[in-house]
Simulated scan of single mutants.
Amino acid sequence: MFRRTFWFTTGVAAGVWATTKVNRKLNQLTPESLAARAADRAVLAGRRVKLFALDVREGMADRETALRDALGLTAAPPADDIPELPAPRGPGRLAQTYPTPYRTTGKEDH
């Protein structure tokens, strides 16, 4: 009697376990689940690319600083060597300074 009960319980437990495993696998293969997994992986890949880009920028800045130090370009130029910038031009002055090369008079010469 106990033997039958033991094997019956073992069979029920194995059936429940197998059914649960199959249902989980089927749920993983639904289109919604596959789309969500693909989206998660895309976000993860984007984060990795962003971190890589930040590492590259940091390395570039370090290398640029090292090159500037090696070439002696880190010292600021003396104040009297800095050229003065020209005054900004407005749209009216730009039009007066650079006239259009082709003006039409309304008459055509043949």
Results as ranks from 00 to 15, higher is better:
residue 57 R to H: 12
residue 49 V to L: 13
residue 48 R to F: 12
residue 73 L to R: 07
residue 12 V to R: 01
residue 99 P to F: 01
residue 24 R to Y: 08
residue 3 R to K: 15
residue 71 L to M: 12
residue 32 E to C: 03
residue 61 A to M: 11
residue 64 E to A: 14
residue 37 R to P: 01
residue 53 A to S: 06
residue 109 D to C: 06
residue 13 A to W: 04
residue 58 E to L: 13
residue 56 V to A: 00
residue 41 R to T: 04
residue 83 P to L: 07
residue 55 D to Y: 10
residue 8 F to E: 12
residue 57 R to P: 06
residue 96 Q to S: 14
residue 96 Q to H: 02
residue 87 A to N: 04
residue 8 F to Q: 08
residue 2 F to C: 05
residue 61 A to N: 08
residue 75 A to M: 00
residue 102 Y to C: 05
residue 108 E to S: 11
residue 97 T to L: 15
residue 37 R to W: 10
residue 97 T to A: 15
residue 7 W to H: 11
residue 2 F to R: 14
residue 5 T to F: 13
residue 89 R to T: 04
residue 83 P to G: 01
residue 53 A to K: 13
residue 17 W to Y: 15
residue 22 V to E: 03
residue 14 A to H: 02
residue 105 T to I: 03
residue 75 A to F: 00
residue 93 R to S: 10
residue 82 I to E: 05
residue 14 A to R: 06
residue 64 E to T: 10
residue 7 W to A: 06
residue 68 R to E: 13
residue 29 L to D: 06
residue 24 R to V: 09
residue 52 F to K: 14
residue 29 L to W: 00
residue 62 D to Q: 01
residue 87 A to M: 06
residue 11 G to D: 01
residue 108 E to D: 09
residue 91 P to W: 13
residue 50 K to P: 04
residue 29 L to M: 07
residue 17 W to I: 11
residue 48 R to W: 13
residue 46 G to K: 09
residue 76 A to L: 08
residue 21 K to E: 13
residue 25 K to M: 08
residue 18 A to R: 04
residue 79 A to W: 07
residue 95 A to S: 02
residue 21 K to C: 10
